[in-house]
Each structure stands twice: as C-alpha cells, then as structure tokens.
Design a binder for these strands. Sequence first.
DNA 1: AGATGTCCCTGGAAGC
DNA 2: TGCTTCCAGGGACATC
Length: 271
Amino acid sequence: MPELPEVEVTRLSFADRIAGARIVGVRVGKPLRWPLQVLPEVLVGQQVVRVRRRGKYLLLDLDRGILFIHLGMSGSLSFVSNAPTSGKHDHFDLGTSQGVLRLNDPRRFGAVVYVNSLDEPLAIKLLGKLGMEPLDPGFDPVLFYERIVRRKAPIKQVLLAGDVVVGVGNIYASEALFQAGIRPTVRACRLSRPRVAKLYESVRDVLARAVTKGGSTLRDFSNAQGEAGYFQFDAMVYGREGLPCKVCGTPIRAIRQGQRASFFCGQCQKP
DNA sequence: AGATGTCCCTGGAAGC
DNA sequence: TGCTTCCAGGGACATC
C-alpha cells in the first residue's frame, strides 16, 4: 500500500531519469479513480521538467501544466526504456523520449489528473486540505501540537485523515504510535504536550527510516526500477496480531477503527 | 467544521 | 475442486 515512503521511493527512482524528457505518446487503459480528463494531444510535445511530491501525490511539472499521479493502494510505476506489451493492469503509459512511465494498478484506486496550474479549482480541491509534510524541514512541532489537540477523534484516525500531517497511512500510523508509546484509541485532545512531541518525532523517524529501506512491500509494491522495499521486516506491530511484541513479548493486538485495522502492544502503548 | 459511515475496485485467502 | 464470502485500504463523498 503506497504511503508517503513508497511514493517518495518511487519518485526518487525515476525523477532524475525522466527530467528533461519530451512526451511522445500516451496510452490509456481502463479508467482509474477518475478517467483521464485530458486529451493526449495536450500532453504530447510537453517536456517533463521535474517530479515533485505532495503528500501521496506525485506531481510531474510539465512545460504548460502539471500531471498528478496517485498510486491509490495497489498502484506502482515503472520507468523503462522499452516497455513490454501492456498487461491487464497497466492503465496508463506516458511515453517519453527517455522511456515509458507506466502505471500498473490492479485495484484502480489510483489516479492520473492533469491541470494547467496549481491555482486551478481541481488542483486546489486535491491539494488544498492537505496537512504538513512530515519529512520537510519546515514540519513545525508547535503547529503539529496545536492542530492535534483540537481534535476529539482517536489519534490513529487523526493521523490517517491527512489534514494535520500527510502521508501517514495505515501501516505507518500504527508504527509511529507504537514508537511513541501511544495507543491508537486515545483521543487526540487527551494527549499531553510531551506525548505529542514524542509522536512528532516518531512520525518523522518512522517515515524517514521507511524511505531508506525502500518502503514496505506487502504484496507487490516496487519502485520505478522494479525494486522491492523491505521496511515490512522492521514493522513492530503492523500485521503482527498475536505475535510477541519485539520489545516486551506481550502478544500484539488488532482492533478495527473506522473500518481499518490497527495494531498495538497493550503493554508498551499507554491509553 | 468535525466525526462517521459508505463506496469504489480486484486479487488472494479463508470457509464451505 | 470450485464456489462464495470476506478482507485489504486511500480518499471522495454524503450525512448528521
């Protein structure tokens, strides 16, 4: 499941190689979350200037617009000089002078969206409510505290919501809360200042470590060069229901919060 | 506005 | 073996 680390790892794996490339063709497969809303002619001829990331969105800056790519939960990109015949789940190809960028997404929760500028309503709708970037040097611990403690929902769901801090999906929310010693069920507004400070550090640390490990490959995630990640082997709680806590040996528990699984250690993580 | 529930989609696992 | 059912989850959207 691509969360911030997987998206960033993907970006790093092809950003330099696609920079400066000229778009020569577009192939669209089955519709994704939204059908591609741009005519291929608008893209062809444009140059890919650079690739940025905002939350879980990849932003390809082109000459005259921006192409958003979201990996959803089962998407992965590949960037190869000679792409093989497209397979069943290859739903978007961006052919360029330097290779083909191909989106493979079995569950089709991903998205490809083109906008002329970030001031456009669609861009604002997609990016406008996003929270702070946790790996950005400007990630502000004071603002993080202020925004966390005004929320009454369980802290796990506040992290997932993405309007305080972006990129923390289900895996890393559980992992960050374990590292901070906080149970996922604690209401955000009940957290003390030191505990929020610990959480701030944990979110940064978990995500940064995951990037260095190439992300988590649970089923089939790989970066644009086809390389799997291996952070999943470092997981302390995610997917470890019933297994002993790596710190204290207590069996890891699994609960459901808002239709999603949360994992925690009842000993190491306090209410 | 915040909280909560529903829905989109498909492959793999589990149950019968 | 083959069928059905459940589950994974990011995030848009509707509802209260």
